[in-house]
Simulated assay, not measured.
Amino acid sequence: MGMIGHLQAITTEELTKFLECSTEDAIVSLLYVDGELDTTGDYLNIDKAWDGINFLLTGELVGEPPLSWVIFGNQVGKGDVRDWLNSLLD
């Protein structure tokens, strides 16, 4: 099993809806339409290339900011993921 990358640009309103989800089914309903992953809008499937892209940008497995932010974002989550996502709205 491996990790794959799907990148999706979302609005603040979409992030708020995501954070309001209390079940996995609610989250899936935001990501899928008629049983298929919603790939409309600003969507990119980078599959397993996320690791190679990060390495090419930074020359390292994890890399240093700001180029590592392309793959990993510029926020480091600590504790509850919901707390970290909510901090993005502040």
Rank of each mutant, 00 (worst) to 15 (best):
F55Q: 09
L19K: 06
I53W: 03
G35C: 06
E60F: 04
C21V: 00
E64D: 13
E64Q: 12
Y43R: 05
A9F: 10
E60N: 08
E36I: 05
E14H: 07
V62E: 10
V28W: 12
T39Q: 14
G63P: 00
Y32N: 09
S29P: 00
L57N: 04
N54V: 00
L31A: 15
K48M: 09
D25L: 00
T12A: 13
L37I: 10
G35A: 08
V28P: 02
E14L: 00
T16G: 11
T39D: 13
V62H: 13
L44S: 13
G59R: 01
L19T: 09
I27W: 03
D25I: 00
S22L: 08
W50I: 04
D47C: 07
Y32F: 15
I27G: 06
I10V: 15
G41S: 03
P66W: 01
T16S: 14
Q8E: 01
E13M: 07
D38C: 05
L15A: 10
D51A: 14
L30N: 03
A9E: 12
N54D: 01
G41M: 01
V33D: 12
K17R: 15
I10H: 12
I27R: 10
I27N: 04
L44Y: 12
L31N: 14
I10P: 09
T23F: 05
Y32C: 08
L56K: 13
Q8Y: 01
G35N: 08
A9I: 07
S29A: 11
E60A: 11
D34N: 14
N45K: 13
D47H: 10
A26L: 04
V28A: 15
I53C: 07
S22P: 01
S29W: 00
Y43L: 03
E60R: 06
T16M: 08
W50P: 04
E20Y: 03
G59A: 02
T11K: 05
